[in-house]
Design a protein around this nucleic acid. Structure first.
Lengths: 201, 201
DNA sequence: GGTTGAATTGAACGGGCGTTCAGTGACAAT
DNA sequence: ATTGTCACTGAACGCCCGTTCAATTCAACC
């Protein structure tokens, strides 16, 4: 047996990426073997190398794609208005986007140490760009006089850590709906930023 | 050659735990081999099994010890006073304790998925106990009327995520000293909790 | 319907894994 | 000086790892 009936690269390629994403998120990059991924795809291990140079770039590409999708999605929202409204928007966007891609988020935060230095730099630069988006909002708010923050850089990291933390416990169908979670976090985020009172939720 | 000169179990035991802690934190549990740990200790791999039943319980014990030390240290601080002062105290304690044990913190958050179900339950129960300590402060503050929180459970998780995030970037000798970082985070934490104004920092 | 190129197999490569255990040298107590 | 236990070695067990490659079969086009 060699080539399988119905086989097409536009099918196997994405399936490889989906399987790798799920398995890496569940068990960790180091604990998942190429043979396990191949079995999930329904293929022998050797066939994977038609779609990725090696295991390392499979991981790096998954992470880079996730972060690029994140930046692209945020760029598309491009909120207008005062800093308060934009921070509200950012918090909701972050929670919503991350809740919809739990596996990719998990990998992008947990598997950084398994990247080679070159790949790490590439990924880290993308993450930094996203952080800067929030930092800009905080700086603008500071300038407009509607936020009160001792350090915008720290605040950006603190708020992102808080928002990303949602992913560790949120499950669809739990005690709270996602919009309700958004409301609660927006309230805390705005308060933490020292936002002057705006329209009540 | 068999027994080595100067060898004593009170020495090798701790050295094993220190080496495992450092290597697990740096490379991840799955990526570190017993032979690597042994080399770090200066011993052959087989000798490790005089000090741990297997690799899995080595990890579980490191995590349990960390969380038990955390709970014990917090119990010893036992802050008195109103909820606002206790929340201030908790935030500073959390940042200080975690900054001093970056490796253990990292492992306790990142390697949960490498625990067997039994060990996972044991560790998770300890973490939950710590979360409850904060939640109690928030509930008391809510009752005292000095906090304004839509959901104390969520707030507890959100604040812990924010505080623990410090560990991802804080390095001794960086732009900000630890006490300064504490001040900044306490400010944001109190604001996020909707704390009514107290003494300025 | 024949040809060509794409998709895949299956075996092999060298190496590392966690764990066990008989053997051995060093220390402590007598 | 002898004994007994403690701490450790070194080899072995069976197994899995990431990656390569010749051979093979299918799909697509002429």
């Amino acid at each position: 047996m060699a080539r399988k009936p119905g086989s097409r690269s536009e099918i196997t390629g994405p399936r490889l990426r989906e399987a790798a994403l799920r398995l890496f998120a569940r068990d960790g990059y180091a604990a998942v073997s190429m043979r396990q991924i191949a079995a999930e795809v329904g293929v022998q291990a050797g066939a994977l190398y038609l779609y990725t140079a090696d295991k390392q770039s499979l991981l790096a590409d998954l992470m880079a794609d996730h972060l690029e999708a994140l930046l692209a999605a945020w760029a598309e929202e491009a909120p207008e208005g005062d800093a308060r409204a934009r921070l509200d928007h950012f918090a909701r966007f972050h929670i919503r986007f991350h809740a919809a891609r739990a596996d990719a988020v998990f990998i992008a935060y947990m598997e950084l140490r398994n990247l080679t230095p070159g790949n790490f730099a590439r990924i880290e630069a993308l993450r930094r760009r996203y952080e800067t988006e929030l930092e800009q909002i905080l700086r603008d708010g500071q300038a407009e006089g509607c936020f009160a923050l001792p350090d915008t850089k720290l605040a950006a990291m603190a708020l992102i850590a808080m928002l990303t933390g949602v992913n560790t416990w949120f499950r669809e169908g739990g005690r709270l709906s996602l919009p309700r979670v958004e409301d609660i976090y927006v309230d805390m985020v705005l308060k933490a930023a020292g936002a002057t009172a705006g329209p009540p939720p």
